[in-house]
Design a protein around this nucleic acid. Structure first.
Lengths: 184, 184
DNA sequence: GTCTATAAGCAGATAGAC
DNA sequence: GTCTATCTGCTTATAGAC
C-alpha cells in the first residue's frame, strides 16, 4: 500500500505537520519562548527530526511565516474602504496561522519585524494608488495602521469591548473613518 | 562634601541609572533579548549589583515599566477626541521610556500584556463614560486601538509614510474619524 | 531514516572574597 | 558594599548508534 508516494510524499506530510505545530506555537508564545522541543512534541516527532528538516529554528520560523500572497487592494476609493474592512473582517474572525505568528513576534524578532513592514508597505502602496487627493500613501498607511491596532487589540490583547462586539458592528463603526481617509 | 545624602541617596541614584538603562534596553530589544549583563554595562555597574538591587530580571522589568499615571480622558465628546489626539501627539513625538518598554514586549511577555491591557482598559473606561450614544465603550476602544496601531506603525515598525509625515498632519487626518467615533 | 546521547553556549542567579 | 567566580538550568545543534 501507499504506491510511490512513499519518500517525497511522506516527507512532505511530516514537514506540514511540523509547520502547523510551529505556526501554532509561534502564534501563541512568540519566537523566543517557543522551543523546538515543544513543536516536536506537538507534531509527534523527535526534536532532532525537526532539525533534520529545517536545519535551524530561525529557518523554521521563516518557512512558517511564509504565506500565500493576499489579494491586492485596488479599485476606487469607496470600494477600497470596503476591501480594507473585508480583510479586517477576516482577521477579526480568525487570523490565518502564518499571520498570527508574524503578528505575535512583530515587535521582538527582527525578521518578523521586517516581514510585517514589507507586507504592510506593499498593502499601503496598493491602497495608496487607489486613493485620490493629497497624501494618498499617508492616508493608506493610517487606514492599515487602524486595522493593525484593532486586530492587536482584539486578538492579542483581548480588550473586553473589542472581544464582546460582533465583527459586523466593529466594521460598521470603523467604516465612516476609513471612508473619510480613503476619499480625501 | 555630600552632607547626609550618602547612603540612601546614593543608592537611589544608582537604582535610577539602572532603571534608565533597563528601560532603554527593554524598549529596544524587548524583555527576552535584553540581558542583565547588558543593562549593567550600560549603567556602568556590575551585573551582580543589579541583582542586589532588584533581585530578579522579572522584578526589574516590573519596576521599569511602572509609570506615573497619565491624565484622565474626560470632558464632552468633541473635547475627548482632542485629548486622545493630544496623547497621540505626545506618543508620536517620543514615547516615554516606560511606555516604550511595555509596548515592545506587549505581545510576548505575559506581564507586559497584562500591563498594556489594564492601562488601555482604564483609558477606555474613562473615554467611554465621556461618549454619548450607543456602544460608548466599544467606540472608545476603537479610538484607542487606532492610536495603538498608528503608534506601533510609526515608532516600532517604522513605516515610511508614517515616519515621513509630521505629527500635525497625522493628527489632522485622524481627527474626523476619531470625532466620528466620539460623537456617535 | 529515526532517535539517543551529548556537546556547546548563554543567561540568570548565588556564594563568598576583598 | 562591590565585584569575582561559579553554579544551574535551559536550549539549540550535532554526532553517532540502531
Amino acid at each position: 500500500m501507499e504506491p510511490q508516494l512513499t519518500r517525497a510524499e511522506r516527507r512532505k506530510r511530516t514537514e506540514e505537520r511540523i509547520l502547523d505545530a510551529a505556526r501554532a506555537r509561534f502564534a501563541e508564545l512568540g519566537y523566543q519562548r517557543t522551543t523546538i522541543r515543544a513543536i516536536a512534541g506537538d507534531a509527534g516527532v523527535d526534536p532532532a527530526l525537526v532539525m533534520q528538516h529545517f536545519a535551524s529554528k530561525d529557518n523554521l520560523f521563516r518557512k512558517a511565516i511564509t504565506e500565500p500572497t493576499t489579494e491586492p487592494l485596488t479599485g476606487d476609493p469607496e470600494r477600497l474602504a470596503e476591501l480594507v474592512l473585508d480583510t479586517l473582517g477576516v482577521k477579526l474572525g480568525e487570523l490565518p496561522g502564518g499571520s498570527a505568528a508574524v503578528l505575535r513576534s512583530m515587535l521582538t524578532h527582527p525578521e518578523a519585524t521586517e516581514h510585517a513592514r514589507d507586507s504592510l508597505t506593499q498593502q499601503i502602496e496598493q491602497a495608496g494608488s487607489a486613493i485620490t487627493g493629497e497624501d494618498p500613501e499617508l492616508r493608506a498607511a493610517l487606514m492599515l495602521a487602524t486595522m493593525l491596532g484593532v486586530t492587536i487589540g482584539r486578538q492579542l490583547l483581548e480588550l473586553r469591548p473589542l472581544r464582546e462586539a460582533s465583527v459586523e458592528r466593529i466594521v460598521e463603526l470603523l467604516r465612516p473613518g476609513l471612508r473619510n481617509l480613503a476619499t480625501g
